[in-house]
């Protein structure tokens, strides 16, 4: 399955706005300026998803994971390396975080939730599609295991749209990735909606 250049451009623009909204909410929370890369968009078979995400994050990660359903369904992730996660929490609660305990996890979830809500909400609003999403969960495991379990859980997924972008809080060691995985059914509908916009 291949995207036309026009589709790709529209999608990129849409994603840019959504991720931009997410990042500005993080900027508001932390008071830091945030640098964000141009998102990378690609369609991959399920076997290719893990290597593609693994390629961008190699260390132990703290992942805030939010499932969304509705006309568009999929998974959104905020990936932070674990030191970055501790640094971010330390910054927010104004206290040195040594270990990720339950309270720290909750803080990360809340932050992840705000960011991902901003992203998905914008997504839905722009496309005029109603999206329902869960309260996020936090995974502190190897990325590989999590993505695998995610794919197994969704029989429908054969292909997926993978959108990734990297961000960094200027003047800090905190950085991470925003990732959205869309099942192929949703992808069709997404393209339909984008066409309508055009």
């Amino acid at each position: 399955m291949i995207l036309t250049d026009r589709q790709r451009d529209s999608l990129k623009e849409l994603i840019n706005i959504a991720f931009g909204k997410a990042v500005s909410s993080l900027s508001e929370l932390t008071g830091y300026r945030i640098v964000i890369d141009v998102p990378k968009i690609g369609i991959y078979s399920i076997n290719e998803i893990v290597p593609n995400i693994e390629g961008i994050v190699t260390e132990e990660v703290a992942t805030v994971h939010q499932i969304f359903t509705g006309r568009l369904a999929g998974d959104a992730f905020l990936l932070l390396d674990q030191n970055g996660a501790k640094a971010l929490t330390s910054l927010l609660i104004d206290e040195q975080v040594e270990t990720i305990d339950v309270s720290t996890k909750e803080v990360l979830i809340e932050v992840g939730n705000i960011i991902l809500n901003a992203c998905l909400g914008t997504f839905g609003n722009m496309l005029n599609v109603h999206i329902t999403f869960s309260v996020p969960r936090l995974h502190l495991s190897a990325l590989n295991d999590m993505i695998n379990s995610l794919i197994i859980g969704k029989e429908g997924i054969r292909y997926a749209l993978l959108i990734t972008t990297q961000f960094k809080l200027k003047g800090s060691e905190i950085g991470g990735y925003l990732v959205i995985v869309l099942g192929v059914g949703s992808l069709d509908r997404l393209l339909e909606e984008i066409e309508k916009l055009g």
């Binding site: 609660i93 309270s103 720290t104 909750e106 803080v107 979830i109 809340e110 939730n113 809500n117 909400g121 839905g124 109603h130 999206i131 329902t132 999403f133 869960s134 309260v135 996020p136």
Partner: peptide
Amino acid sequence: GEPILLSHR
């Protein structure tokens, strides 16, 4: 339509 989590912290 947004779910919210309010952490104790």
